[in-house]
Design a protein around this nucleic acid. Sequence first.
DNA 1: AAAAATCTTGACCGGTTGGTCAGACTGTGG
DNA 2: CCACAGTCTGACCAACCGGTCAAGATTTTT
Lengths: 211, 211
Amino acid sequence: MPQMQKPNSKKERRLESEKLILDAAEKVFAEAGFGGATMQLIADMAGLPKANLHYYFPTKESLYRQVVQNIFQVWLEAADVFDKAETPAEGIGAYIDAKMEISRHHPAGSKVWASEVMHRAPVIQDYLETTLTDWTEGRATIIERWIAEGRMAPVDPHHLLYMLWATTQHYADFGHQIETLNGGEPLSDAQWDAAKQSVKEIILRGIGVTV
Amino acid sequence: MPQMQKPNSKKERRLESEKLILDAAEKVFAEAGFGGATMQLIADMAGLPKANLHYYFPTKESLYRQVVQNIFQVWLEAADVFDKAETPAEGIGAYIDAKMEISRHHPAGSKVWASEVMHRAPVIQDYLETTLTDWTEGRATIIERWIAEGRMAPVDPHHLLYMLWATTQHYADFGHQIETLNGGEPLSDAQWDAAKQSVKEIILRGIGVTV
DNA sequence: AAAAATCTTGACCGGTTGGTCAGACTGTGG
DNA sequence: CCACAGTCTGACCAACCGGTCAAGATTTTT
């Protein structure tokens, strides 16, 4: 029987270092973009020498790719609430709540995603064409069923989805602008609740669902 | 009386070159971000030697600043339609139309703006604090008046404005994603009309305005 | 305890970047 | 026609970037 492992076994430290690097990278990529980010900056933020980064992630692009993939994963998981709902009010309402939570607590990830898409998705184009396309068509089908069942107004499902994405992610991607317009203060708990409430209210009423 | 000027007088060529550079810069900054853009790339796209760029714009940052300022100008002008309307349906509907037109025909500008704000607005923070804040408060007042007059549902004016910005700019900033989800094809004229229609329909109904 | 595998790091490198500059070129006013 | 201010550009530079590498330190395996 192996002795009780020290808290820092080799495999544990590997995972720790990788997480340290990925978290630092997400922040730096979000704040400076891929081109503006430097490995040195990420290394400093992670508290590691630059050469160590290249041990875990051979190139800047491979590190970036991992960051974007992780974000995509968080994104997709949060979207599950859409399916588990019977009514549009439940499904879309819960989806808005989930995405607003991500925007609030994971804004860097949203920014990296936005930056990647704005630059014509050089790294994750295949994800857009496969996973995201499939997910979108699946959700569009659900919306169309709701419409056919007379549960909501007949709106174009794709443009509704775009509006959901745009509105919720706006609070992450343009968080700095919102903060500035809020007198330089980050939104308070109550203001975040009001934001969620407003978004849900307008969109749900907009698709003919009683709030 | 001076003789008929050649088409390329000195002042004309100056303006021409500046416009050439600014147009090229807008595209490159939009596609690569500030950090990823290079003066050489902008010079190539403008068809001028790099040193010539530095004659008109001493630094990369001064060129970038001018690009962002121009975008802000276009933005503000298009927002005028908001005021000239009597009813919420007219004002907000026309504003959505105007912003969707910008997203369609001026997407690079929107992307540069988004990128700048995402990076915490290092160049145009003062604009956010003065001009944009003033504009926003002015429009919020108009919306509040409409609400007080019972012309629309009582929604938070700021969050409504954020939703308008988010939704319309999404079609520029995330145009690549939308194109990919559209089978790799850009939106057709009819699809752009449908997009405008959907956005207006959902939002106007969402704020309790008969469409 | 020795050998093997894994991890860490300072020093280094070729290539690129933003920016400079001397000097050639050109339109303009006298 | 000339002198001058304004325009243009190839060649160049210091700084910085992503990435490499050899050698030492540390952990795991035998």
